[in-house]
Design a protein around this nucleic acid. Sequence first.
DNA 1: CATTATTCACCGTCCATTCGGCAATTTTAT
DNA 2: ATAAAATTGCCGAATGGACGGTGAATAATG
Lengths: 183, 183
Amino acid sequence: MTIQSRMQAKNASPRILGAARAIAHREGAGKITIDAVAREADLSKGGVLYNFPTKRALLAGLLDEMLAEHRERLASVPEDRRSRTLRGHLEAIVQARAVDDDLSMAILAAAASDPRLLDPLRAELTGDLERILSDTQDTSGAMVVVLAIQGLRFQKLLGLPDGGAGLRGRVIEQLRAMINELE
Amino acid sequence: MTIQSRMQAKNASPRILGAARAIAHREGAGKITIDAVAREADLSKGGVLYNFPTKRALLAGLLDEMLAEHRERLASVPEDRRSRTLRGHLEAIVQARAVDDDLSMAILAAAASDPRLLDPLRAELTGDLERILSDTQDTSGAMVVVLAIQGLRFQKLLGLPDGGAGLRGRVIEQLRAMINELE
DNA sequence: CATTATTCACCGTCCATTCGGCAATTTTAT
DNA sequence: ATAAAATTGCCGAATGGACGGTGAATAATG
């Protein structure tokens, strides 16, 4: 560990972001501190601050990473399907593992420390929403699905009751059906 | 629990909680600090800590207040209607004004500082969900509505795009219709 | 050698919490 | 009924720790 960890990696940023995610997942979004992240990433505090000159930048980096993964998930939906963006949003949360939870914690951390950090997320979602709504005539029907997906996100994030895995599966199935019925 | 048992002549607790809400609303959940709350409530720091011996207790107090208002809103739905709890949840968010927003910020503050603070909220929602699901055969249909309502909450809280007031109104109308169609 | 990545030692600030005291109020004793 | 004692509600200064950030020195890379 000492030898490898002392070797300079090309870029410690991913390790740092991973460490931040791990802390957020384990101890809560509020525990993301530069010292803690440095410890977790096996790096000095200066090392962290070299890659992310401020804590704000670190949080912004977390969100950026999240948005990148989000875009990737959306892109994985076949081009030709109707309601492509909406499907992407749903499948993104279906496939979400622990990693995704951590990144949602980043939203909380960002929102708590500085609501403006969420601006890129807002911009992204605004674009998504436009695409989703222009994909169908039944805008309110589509919006209900969007909202339910967001509800799933935060339910998981905050550990709110979900009625059990079975129900969850049926809900997702139903949301898929609702998307199919959009015109 | 030292929630409301202090009803002696002078009691600064409500003023303190109000101050905390005001700060959360104005500057974000992360800015809730004992000093700031004391200043806002026109009280000394010691005064705040006399009423809420720790910051954790203060946040717990915020959540407790929120749950009380939540219960009140639920109780305002006529006894005889079907899907009473579910309707209550929906109407609660329809009627929500600024006050409610502030209290949602309290959720963020609590989640960020210590996820366990959300335990009472989880318990309350678990009970609500049980009632909601036992009110109907179409559990996944009901759950979709629950999730959409939660989505509305966080959308508002985080300032995420909502497609405009018109769409929002139609969505709420549609959710009402979905509730009516539950069996 | 030049650039990049990282360490190390600090600094100043903020912040939760503690503590001793104080005025007003309430309780107890006389 | 009244003096004494205890309690309540709060103040304000002090403490100590955590946290974000800086800058000079050092190691690694190419």
